[in-house]
């Protein structure tokens, strides 16, 4: 359940990668799309033969907005010892484009497609850049921070969604109401002053009321 408590203002970091604690999990290199390929080719020359992961992060308020994160692995002594490198490539939010590395490492193929699918970051030179997790005709890039968790279709419906479908709840006063509306209803029943307008209930309840009307009473579909 999303947290109803918010942290004090100013206590969250805009760029966590800049102020990270001293954890020795990987050597960290920060680069830009223009310098990315040279950086990775140099690392491959230095023995980092495996590109173990390509992922994306959306920092929303930071400039550049996105980070494409590459993790590389160097194996020594036939794998008995290993070293990790993390390459962070900052990508701007407007027209995000990064050169592909799928010609250098075949492992990047699907990983870059996934970053494209979920963040909308294009990889120039990728042989087959299309959606991989979402259906081909899906609109929007779900893992972006401005994409609603429950998707645009269900964004403003109240939770939990089974209350909308249940043939029992459809007949009850609670069905299709937002939490605020229920509070007003309770306050009104107690004879207390209500805050907010009843019009807001209607607005939120409208799509759900229409849904409720379509529900057959015997529960069959």
């Amino acid at each position: 359940m999303p947290s109803s408590q918010t942290p004090p203002a100013g206590s969250t970091a805009l760029d966590p990668t800049a102020i990270r604690p001293a954890i020795d999990d990987a050597r960290i290199i920060r680069t830009s799309p223009a310098a990315l390929r040279d950086e990775l080719i140099a690392l491959r020359g230095a023995g980092y033969a495996m590109l173990s992961d390509v992922g994306g992060v959306d920092y929303l308020a930071r400039e550049p907005r996105f980070d494409v994160v590459y993790h590389l692995l160097k194996l020594e002594l036939n794998g008995a010892r290993a070293h990790r490198v993390r390459v962070l490539c900052g990508v701007p939010g407007v027209e995000p484009v990064v050169p592909t590395v799928s010609d250098l490492w075949p492992s990047a193929d699907w990983a870059e497609r996934e970053v494209y699918d979920l963040f909308g970051i294009s990889f120039s030179g990728h042989p087959d850049l299309r959606r991989i997790q979402m259906p081909a005709e899906w609109e929007g890039h779900p893992l972006r921070k401005d994409y609603p968790l429950r998707g645009p279709a269900r964004e403003r419906t109240p939770r939990p969604s089974f209350a909308l479908k249940s043939n029992v709840a459809a007949g009850t006063p609670a069905a299709g109401k937002t939490a605020a509306a229920l509070q007003r209803q309770i306050a009104a029943a107690r004879g207390q002053a209500t805050v907010g307008s009843a019009a807001a209930d209607e607005l939120a309840a409208e799509p759900n009321a229409a849904r409720g009307a379509q529900l057959p009473k015997d529960g069959s579909k």
Binding site: S3, Q5, P7, S11, T12, A13, L14, P16, T17, S52, D53, G55, G56, V57, D58, V69, H71
Partner: peptide, 16 residues
């Protein structure tokens, strides 16, 4: 790959 921005929720959990 876990990113925290200081909040009580993860900012990003990228799976390898």
């Amino acid at each position: 790959y876990i990113v925290s921005n200081g909040d009580n929720r993860p900012w990003r959990v990228r799976t390898r």
